[in-house]
Design a protein around this nucleic acid. Structure first.
Lengths: 297, 297
DNA sequence: CGCAAGCTTGAGGTCCTTCAAACCCAGTGG
DNA sequence: CCACTGGGTTTGAAGGACCTCAAGCTTGCG
């Protein structure tokens, strides 16, 4: 859908500042979309889904975890429909603590294409930094709580700690795998495309305890989903209703429910392999592999 | 386009073996699509585009280059329309020395979607290995000359040599950046999509001296291009002719010519930034950055 | 209450697909 | 030398998927 640039880009206006002071003055439980797993306990990074997610690549030592926890030097709130990096200092990466965000590009037609969702516990503006992502932006779809991490320090940690290096490799490779699956998904008809996206969201959110067996909170508009699917908002709506009437999903009050998950997955041709939830588990760490690259099939 | 699985998959048949013995018995100049930059000089990896490409991430020391050169333990020929990894030993990664290849997945409809091209000097089956790429395959579009590299040794080198680590990071991040651009490209109409693909090929091939100012050899069928664009072969043809009659390109005898490159790039909205040709140049190496992650904008 | 944002529905048109047939060309065998 | 074959390209016609424009509706909120 056509995308109004100015409201999204030039972000050094009052909205941001008021939001920043807002979040400082509030306890995090009061900011609306902050979740139970999003607590501040003495430091800015305690008990968040980030470390949990990283450990899918193999266990981290206590040292490594402590180092990672000290990375955050700022915590702020990004309102919906605003970019994370208006000024782009470049010396930091962003860690989403709560809320839904996305990476996107804007075409010359004014259309926006979302290339990936960013969920709580996801790092961004790391792989996409510098010359790689000059035209790639990160924006909040809902109000997001974001921690700024020091990029130089993170880079240093990657060089010093094999567990951290392995974890960041894992995150990066999964992002690549996911992007390729999105390319494949773009060749499917719109109904399967939407179904596939919902399956991906379900499993990704389950991984961080933000989804139950049969559904999840999803405070994202149909227009945003349309931009992620690469189809129009109107057609997204029609396809959504087709899924509804066929009983595959329900979606109302910002809640998605999937009564028969295997059925939806079959319909969508969804194979979670590309998300690589199982691949670098305990055995990888036990084998003390320096990086996911070491893994054969 | 619908994809005949059996002819592509079960590859332990005579065709492969005869090809392998073929390439052993031939000087590399005689195998058809081998190029001038594809010479064997004492070892299997001399003077190929691989090292040249890696040095875009920053200079490699002589030590590092020598280590990389010793990685290849086998060199073989993969005939067109055959997979690289029929048996998938998993202990190796593939380096394309000449020819055009692709990464692809096959949908349940039988359609194939190509998610990226693999050009001479490209590594594959590295990021895509293991659980990440269970359904991702690598196949030759034309006859390819391929070197097998030892995966464990490469992993070791990544851990030991900062220059190699940086280079492999760079390759990976560029692949991610490229995948995201392909997602974006999927939202453009077919004519711009094709134009964008040709622009990407032009600049990528120029980087390894396989393209001139205004065109390149492209012995790939329209059907293959269709699978890379995610549109049908018939429509690819029609769109191609539209580009031809509008004077933007010519394409015949397996040769693509682009009389006015800036014009085509403008038409395609092509911004080479995502290929990151300039980003980790001499300055990055001079600053002795451990990895591309260190780069800010 | 009234506004704004999002959702829903309708109608008409465009882009792209499938099916089908013809064509071209290089290679093969009689 | 020519007929045959097969892969790739080209063209036509009909249908479906998806888009845009536009209006009405529903909901939350000041």
């Amino acid at each position: 859908m056509p995308w109004a640039q100015p409201s999204y880009v030039g972000l050094s206006d009052r909205a941001t500042d008021s939001c920043r002071s807002l979040v400082r003055s509030l306890s995090s439980d009061a900011t609306g979309s902050l979740t139970a797993s999003d607590r501040i306990e003495g430091n800015l990074l305690a008990a968040d889904p980030f470390l949990h997610k990283l450990e899918h690549a193999g266990r981290l030592t206590d040292d490594e975890k402590n180092e990672l926890k000290t990375l955050a030097f700022n915590r702020r709130c990004v309102p919906a429909h605003h970019d994370f990096n208006p000024g782009d200092p470049g010396d930091r990466v962003y860690l989403v603590m709560s809320g839904f965000a996305c990476r996107y590009k804007v075409l010359r037609t004014g259309n926006r294409r979302i290339v990936s969702f960013v969920l709580p516990g996801d790092l961004c503006h790391m792989h996409d930094a510098g010359a790689f992502g000059r035209d790639l932006r990160v924006g909040a779809l809902t109000t997001c709580s974001v921690a700024d991490l020091s990029r130089p320090k993170l880079t240093e940690l990657i060089g010093s700690y094999p567990g951290i290096s392995r974890a960041i490799w894992w995150v990066t490779l999964r992002e690549l795998s996911r992007a390729r699956e999105w390319i494949v998904n773009d060749t499917r008809p719109a109904d399967k495309r939407l179904a596939h996206l919902l399956c991906e969201l379900l499993t990704s959110l389950q991984q961080i305890d933000l989804a139950g067996e049969h559904g999840f909170d999803f405070p994202v508009s149909q227009g945003d989903v349309a931009d992620a699917l690469g189809i129009s908002a109107v057609h997204t709506n029609r396809v959504l209703q087709a899924l509804r009437t066929s009983g595959l999903i329900t979606w109302s009050n910002q809640q998605v429910a999937i009564p028969d998950v295997p059925q939806l997955k079959a319909f969508a041709e969804f194979d979670p392999g590309y998300l690589c939830l199982e691949c670098f588990g305990a055995e990888a760490a036990a084998a003390r592999m320096p990086s996911p690259l070491a893994r054969a099939s």
